[in-house]
Nucleic acid binder design. Sequence first.
DNA 1: GTAGAAGTTAGAGTGCGCTCTAAGTCAAAC
DNA 2: GTTTGACTTAGAGCGCACTCTAACTTCTAC
Lengths: 137, 137
Amino acid sequence: MAEDEAGLTVAQMTAATGVSGHTLRYYERAELIRPVARNSGNQRRYSSADVEWLKFLLRLRETGMPIAQMREYAQLRERGSVTTEPRLRLLEAHQAGLRRQIARLRAHEKALAGKIATYLDDLAALQSQQEKGSEDD
Amino acid sequence: MAEDEAGLTVAQMTAATGVSGHTLRYYERAELIRPVARNSGNQRRYSSADVEWLKFLLRLRETGMPIAQMREYAQLRERGSVTTEPRLRLLEAHQAGLRRQIARLRAHEKALAGKIATYLDDLAALQSQQEKGSEDD
DNA sequence: GTAGAAGTTAGAGTGCGCTCTAAGTCAAAC
DNA sequence: GTTTGACTTAGAGCGCACTCTAACTTCTAC
């Protein structure tokens, strides 16, 4: 008995998602991922549904959602379609936060662009001074 | 001797920037802020230049710059106008990263909006089923 | 001049999200 | 059948950015 109960190994999951084996197991302990199917040798075999779910989690993570809230969402999901509404509300709240975050970052980017512009002016001034000083070197 | 060497107290600095006294002292230890002027009783008095610098640091922080890199920038700044060029390069690199971050977040926001739309469809379907089931309650 | 708020220091503690260790089991190639 | 390497577990450790503690001093208001 060996390569039974088809599905992705931990290493294949890492290749597919960029998430390390350590972190995959951590997410399972943290209840972000339901207990994964095992082969006859007790090794994890991830389904394509597991891959999709993890990719969704990564989206939430990259947009700053804390583990605790991802777990909350995961637990609602486990309870099926009766929790559709609270899950929707959770996502809508997250979306609103995300939009605020994007707006803030855009404002910061604009301010940074302004600062960079004054630096470029400063540099131009410094360089024209240097040219004056070394006109006949 | 008391209210000499005018400037903002720690509490006033907190009011002006939202940064706690503990964190202000931490930033000084971390060399993000140069040793602040003291009054005759050894208490900190922040100048308006200190306020501006801190606000700039907060911008960098909010855009995800780590403390170590902020310190690097601060140390270049301490060395005066000879470091204008490296500081400019640092800011330009940060701006490029920030733009990538904004683009990523916008893509995530779009995907999230799609997910929310399918949830809304699911909910509408569930609700019309419920209506059917309870037509003559 | 005295109470209470606000400041000082060095250093310990916290929360988050991993990340690694140790000791062992299992699988595939030779 | 043995080596090599991926896998398993429970639990310890880490890096970051604070955040707080304890013991003490100073300032402000009365």
